[in-house]
Every structure is written in C-alpha cells, then in structure tokens.
Design a protein around this nucleic acid. Structure first.
Lengths: 342, 342
DNA sequence: GTGCGGCCAGAAAACCTATTCCGAAAGTTC
DNA sequence: GAACTTTCGGAATAGGTTTTCTGGCCGCAC
C-alpha cells in the first residue's frame, strides 16, 4: 500500500479536513481560512499529491488532449509539423497523442475509434500530399483540422501549404537574379503538389513573357537519380538554360551533380533552386541550395491554433487556410558569391 | 442535447435493463441470457455508444497509455524509433503521448509532471546520443525505459544500439572484401557513439594485425563538409587507402564526393561504408552506400516490449539491452559491380 | 403437497477520484 | 436574539465496473 499514489482523501485525512475542502484549497476556489489553505497545501506537498487528470476530465468534460493522425509513417514531413503543433499546444498544457496509420484505412479507423473513447478534445489529420481524402470517421462534435490533405466534406477545415506561391517565389527570385531561360524538374505529375509548384512558376514566366526552358515541365520521381537524368534531358533540349527550379531538394541535389559533372558552374552558369528546405540535404549540397521552405512548422502551428479555437467554440471562418512559403537563400542562386576565381 | 454522447445509462434505458447489466453484456462478463445480451448490444450499436475510456481507467487503474519523451526536437532518429514503438504497442491498443523536451530540463520536468497526472502506464525516454542523464523526475512506481541515453541510476533499464558491433561489422565486411588499408572518418570525439564505432573497427583491425589508414581516427563533425575535408586529409596522409568507414551517411556522402573529384572509383579504388542507413542519403548517393543500420526500429520495438513487461509486473532482467546492428549492402563496397567499363 | 436449498438473471448499490453545490455550524454585528 | 458572514462538511455528480442482493424458479425430500 505504500506504493499507492495519494488521493484527495489522503490529503484530507492528513490535513484534518474534508475532501471538498482539499479541492477548494488546492484550486483557490471557495471561501477558506488562509491557515486551512496552507495546511492543505502542506499536506499535499508532503504526500507528493498529484491530482488524477482522469477524474478531473471526467468531471469537466475536457481532457486537454489532442491527437495527431498522420499517414506519413512518422516521415520527415511530420517532424517540423509536430514542432509547430507543440509550439501552439504546449502553452495550453495540452498533451498530444501521436497515431500513425501507415496509409491503412483499417488502422486509421481503429485509431479514430480509440481516440473517440479517450474523449480527445480535437484531432489533427495530416497527410503528406495534397489530395482529397474521406473525412475521418469520428464521433460528430469532435473538432478536426486537416493538414495538407483535405477532407472530401467541404465543411471540414484544412490548413495547407502554398505550393503555387512557392513556385512563384522561386520564379521571381530567378528572374530578379537576371535569369531568363528557366527550366523546371519535379516529381510525379499525378500529384497536385508538383503541378501547383509548376503552375506558380509558369504564371511568373507568363507575366514576364518568357517560356519554360526545354519547352515543358520535366515530371518524374522524387529522387536524386531523376534529378540527374532529367538535368541531362533538359540541357540536351535547351543548352542555353541558365536556371533550374527543382520540385524537391533531393531532385536539386541530383541536378547539381549532373551540372558538376558537365563542368557547369552553379550558380555562375546555372542557378538552382530547390524545394522543401530539408536542411541536411540543402545545406550539405555543394554549393548549398537556395530552396523554397514550405513553412511546415508554421502550418502545424496554425493548425493547432485553429483547432484550439474550434475546441473553445470560436467559429473558424473559411474552409481552407493557406500558409505562405518563404525562400531560404543560399549560394546556389548566387546570393553570396563564393569566390571570384571559381 | 442531441449532441451529447451516449452513456451506459442511455443504453440501459433503451435496452430496458440496468446499467450494471449493460456493462456485463458489453464486456462478456457475468451471467446473462443470450437474448438480453443481444438486446443490449443492439441498443449500444443503435446509439453509437463508445465507453468513456476515462471512466474505465479511473476504475481499473490502467490507462493503456504510454508516453515517449524525446530530446530530439522530433528529429530524424525519432522516426524509426516511433515506428518500432508503435509496432509493439499497437497490438495492445495502447496509445502514445509524444513529448519533446527540446533539450530543456524545465520542459522535461513539466512534461513528466503532466504525465504523472495523466497516470500513464509507462514512459520511454529517448535521447539521441549515448550519454548518461539524470533519471526522469516521475512518480515512483511508474515504469520507465531509457533508450540510447541511459539513466544515471544503475537500477534503471536501458535499451540501446550496438555501436561497437556496428563498427566491427563494417570492419569485417571491408576485410572480407579484400581491403587492408582502412581509414575512419567520423563525428565529434566528445560523443560516445563515434568512439564506440571506432573501437569496434579498431578491434577488428587488431585481430587482423592491421593498422588504421592514416594512423588515426579522423574525428570531426556530423556533416558532409567534414567528410569532404577529412577525405582530403586522409588521402594526403595515406594515399594507399583502399577503404573508408564513415561514422555517418552524411559524412560518407562528403567522402564520396571528394573521391569523385579526385577521379577515384568507388568501390573500384576505394570502398566506402556509411553509418545510419538513412535511406534518402544512402540510396541517393552515387554509388549507393553500403551502410551500417543501427536498427532503431528494433530498438523502439524492444523498448516498448520491455516496458509492457514492466507494466504487467514481469521483472525485466539486466539493466541494459543492446540491439545488434546490421549491414545494408549497396554498391559502394562492390557488392554489385555496376558495369565493367566504369 | 409443502418446505427449503440452490441456481439464475438482473437490479441495486458501492467504488474509482476529483469537483461543485448546498447547507449547517460557528462566529459577528447590532 | 435576529440577521449575516465566514468557513467548512457532506452529498451529488461525472461514467463506467464490480460486488452484493433479491426475486423467481426448479428440484428434492419428507
């Protein structure tokens, strides 16, 4: 019995008061003599009393827990996202359940059910790609915020990245750097994300009256190897290319390697912009990559903030909130000239 | 009121029985007529009844929740670890709270306190480096398993990676490939992880009567840039080097780049082994990297399994469990010859 | 035929831990 | 001594599980 964690009852006995009084004393509620309050507080301290959050939640109807359901296999995109979520939630003493569905609907349903039973205050559903997905099968009334992937129910709220804007950002940056023959190498055409990034770039080129170098977007895979191969293709099609915008930092790494093999200087001959700002990939590149940061941490922060609003009953306006991307400037676009003789 | 989630009482009314009977019916306990049981189940289904896990936990003393506290800023090492943890926990319907301390003791203490109040069944404390750390300040009686970083209290249990074994694995592999002038480039000497990996390699070289190429371990940073620079240094000190074992895949990438710049073939002239098996880094390398996989997913699985044992009251024997590493074979050590003329 | 033990199904009540509301006892004030 | 105020105890509550209790029915024995 010495192992048993103390309850209000134990504290009450030790302080010589009733349980109700203990509660009031510890929560600064009701009318109590200062001396009594102090005695209770001392007893609680002596016993190492910690109120049982389960009992409190049962009473109050709020658990101060939130769940993040990700389809990402705890992948790389989830990390900055989680950081942002905790930024927003930590201040409120809200704990977070992390669930990974591994892209399995059965697993997802199972998790949703468990979260229902645990009476979480709200749920964040994070996909790793922009796509429409069926709404989470969860008890009605539980606030849900979708991240990146959006629900097929238009009344559900979604926070997402601005890929069109990111593509435009890259395009404007390259134009400002004096480039006029800009090519684009990116991921699979069947995904919306790369298509949007390409559209952003295209709109900027259109405004400037320029055409895409190579005459087309080079859609392919999210791999360095595709970057290497596509760079060859692009340079073959358009030898006067002076800038390449890549749909990911991995692709950009491959592109840069091909350029190096061909004795083309980056950014001297060709400027390169990546996407993701995946630190180890982008900073480790030679030269380090200028890259579009999709601002995932901020996406997480916004999603969590809106979820807290919904939990508090504040109506969230609009059905989608887009978080602007920003550009991480490094050497691959000549922001800082490395050294004159190179 | 239509929004209120149904309780056992609602089910009881609908089925025309008492609440106790509902409980027994839904949990297959006690003696009930089959007809009654079916009636209750039907009523529960009709109402969409989900038992309140808080109430159940309050009663049973078990919450079926576990927390993972990481100092890693949700870093990359946490991902495979979490995957392993969920592998083991998922089967038991145990949910996991994820807490990140961001290396701040205040934050950690705050999280520990919250978890205490939530009455989690157990806690996994994951560090990103092998080091001794003060035990988590948590209520006595709550099982805690430390991962990678170990507690300064020797009675605490720790699951960790086998860095000595990993280093030896790399060494033996290179010897088996016929290499005899093996160098080693790795991270900071102040960390135990790189020192252990070096020790593992050294022991294999000793057994074979060989010396380390370059006469020393090249300790430095965990960056590609260090890999590039250190490779230069190593080749300068020992031009006959025919293999390099690197303390991380990032370092290996840098090393491979330098070798390529110097027109040295990998693995033809020099074989390279990395460490981490960080897929995008290792697979994207040209040639793809043979690398030591520290088996973090298994570490997570073992940690969670042992934690469940401790929660169940089974005594866990020993104070540290080491999970063996394994070798991911790719082309950088010549497992598969790319093509003859290269 | 009747009395009683035993069994079954399900109701009723206790319990888990903390909060809150109501009211009572004690002390004050006029 | 009536009317308040202050201070605190006790009970109700949240939503389940578990234990105890009760009423009806059956079977067996006298």
């Amino acid at each position: 019995m010495s192992q048993r964690v103390p309850t209000v009852r134990d504290v009450a006995v030790r302080a010589g008061v009733s349980v109700g009084t203990v509660s009031k004393a510890l929560n600064n509620r009701g009318q109590l003599r200062e001396e009594t309050r102090a005695r209770v507080v001392a007893a609680a301290r002596d016993l190492g009393f910690r109120p049982n959050a389960l009992a409190q939640s049962l009473q109050s109807g709020r658990t101060y827990t939130v769940a993040v359901i990700t389809t990402d296999r705890f992948g790389r995109f989830g990390n900055p996202l989680m950081l942002g979520v905790e930024d927003a939630l930590g201040a409120d003493r809200v704990s977070v359940f992390l669930c990974d569905t591994r892209d399995d609907p059965i697993r997802e349903h199972h998790h949703a059910q468990t979260l229902d039973e645990r009476r979480v205050d709200g749920i964040i559903v994070a996909g790793r790609r922009k796509q429409t997905r069926p709404p989470l099968a969860v008890a009605s009334g539980v606030p849900v915020v979708y991240v990146i992937a959006q629900s097929s129910d238009p009344s559900d709220f979604c926070v997402t990245t601005d890929d069109v804007g990111g593509g435009a950002l890259a395009g404007r940056h390259l134009l400002a750097a004096g480039r006029t023959h800009i090519g684009h190498i990116t991921g699979p055409e069947r995904f919306a994300d790369p298509r949007e990034r390409a559209a952003g770039l295209q709109s900027v080129l259109d405004s400037a009256g320029l055409d895409l170098a190579g005459g087309q977007v080079f859609y392919g895979e999210w791999s360095e190897d595709w970057g290497r191969r596509a760079a060859e293709m692009l340079l073959h099609a358009a030898p006067d290319t002076d800038a390449i915008f890549c749909g990911s930092d991995q692709i950009a790494r491959g592109v840069v390697e091909t350029l190096r093999d061909r004795r083309l200087r980056v950014p001297g001959d060709i400027a390169v912009v990546g996407f993701d700002n995946w630190e180890p990939m982008a900073a480790g590149c030679r030269p380090p990559l200028t890259t579009v940061d999709p601002n995932l941490r901020e996406v997480g922060r916004v999603a969590a903030t809106r979820l807290l609003d919904m939990i508090a009953g504040t109506p969230v306006q609009g059905s989608t909130e887009t978080v602007p991307a920003w550009l991480m400037l490094r050497e691959s676009t000549g922001v800082r000239l490395v050294d004159p003789q190179s």
